[in-house]
C-alpha cells in the first residue's frame, strides 16, 4: 500500500502537469501561431477536466469503496479552480487586455461567456470557502449545501464548452457524457440507500 501522504503528492503533481506543459510549451515555441488562443483552449480544457476529476471522488467511493479520493477532494477542487482562474485571467488580461467594454458586451451577448462566468462565480465562492475557518463559520450543514453548487458549476462548464464549439461537438459531448455518468452514479446511489 502506498502511504496516503505520498499518494496525495502524486495526485497533486499529476494535476500540475497541464500547467507545467503550458510553461514548457511557452519556452519551446510549442504554443503555435496563435499562442493566446492556444493558452485559452488549454486552460479551459483542463479546467473542465479537473472539475470532472474532482467530481469522480465520490463515485470512486460508491463503486469501489475507495476513500482516499474523497479525502483529496479539496485539493482536486482547488486545482480545478486554479485552471478556471488562469483561464479567465488569460481571457481578461491577455486576450481582451482589460477592454472592459468588449468584455461587458461578451458577457451580455454571448451565451457561452455568460454561462462560463456563472461557472467561475460558483467555483470562486467554493474556493474561497474551502478552508477550516469557513466551515466552522458557516456550520457543516450549510457548508455542504453551498458546496453542492459544484454540480451547477460543472453543468455550466459543459454548457460553456458545448456552446462555444463551432461544429465539432464530439469533444464537448464526451465531457457531457462523463459528467452525466458521474452525477448518475450519485443519483442511483442515493435512491438505493434511501430504499434500504
Amino acid at each position: 500500500m502506498i502511504p496516503y501522504r505520498v499518494l496525495w503528492w502524486v495526485v497533486f503533481a499529476v494535476m500540475a502537469i497541464p500547467l507545467l506543459q503550458l510553461i514548457a510549451f511557452a519556452f519551446t515555441g510549442g504554443l503555435g501561431a496563435n499562442p493566446i488562443e492556444f493558452i485559452n483552449r488549454h486552460l479551459g480544457d483542463w479546467a473542465l477536466r479537473s472539475l470532472l476529476v474532482a467530481l469522480s471522488a465520490t463515485p470512486l467511493k460508491i463503486l469501489f469503496g475507495w476513500t482516499w479520493a474523497v479525502r483529496m477532494r479539496r485539493m482536486l477542487g482547488l486545482w480545478a479552480f486554479a485552471y478556471v482562474a488562469l483561464h479567465i485571467t488569460n481571457y481578461v488580461a491577455i486576450d481582451q487586455f482589460f477592454d472592459w467594454a468588449a468584455i461587458g458586451t461578451d458577457l451580455v451577448k454571448r451565451t457561452y461567456i455568460t454561462v462560463g462566468m456563472g461557472a467561475f462565480t460558483i467555483l470562486f465562492t467554493l474556493a474561497a470557502t474551502s478552508n477550516k475557518r469557513a466551515i466552522k463559520y458557516m456550520g457543516g450543514k450549510a457548508w455542504i449545501r453551498v458546496h453542492k453548487y459544484v454540480y451547477g458549476a460543472a453543468i455550466l462548464g459543459c454548457w460553456h464548452y458545448y456552446a462555444m464549439v463551432k461544429a465539432d461537438v464530439l469533444p464537448p459531448l464526451i465531457h457531457i457524457a462523463i459528467l452525466t455518468g458521474l452525477l448518475g452514479i450519485r443519483i442511483w446511489h442515493n435512491i438505493k440507500t434511501k430504499k434500504t
Binding site: 496563435n34 458586451t105 457561452y112
Partner: peptide, 19 residues
C-alpha cells in the same frame, strides 16, 4: 455586424499581441 460567437469589431493579426 457582430457574430453570435465573436464581436467582429477587432481582430488579432497572427504574431501581434494587441488586437
Amino acid at each position: 455586424v457582430s457574430h453570435p460567437r465573436w464581436s467582429q469589431a477587432k481582430e488579432r493579426l497572427i504574431g501581434e499581441f494587441f488586437k
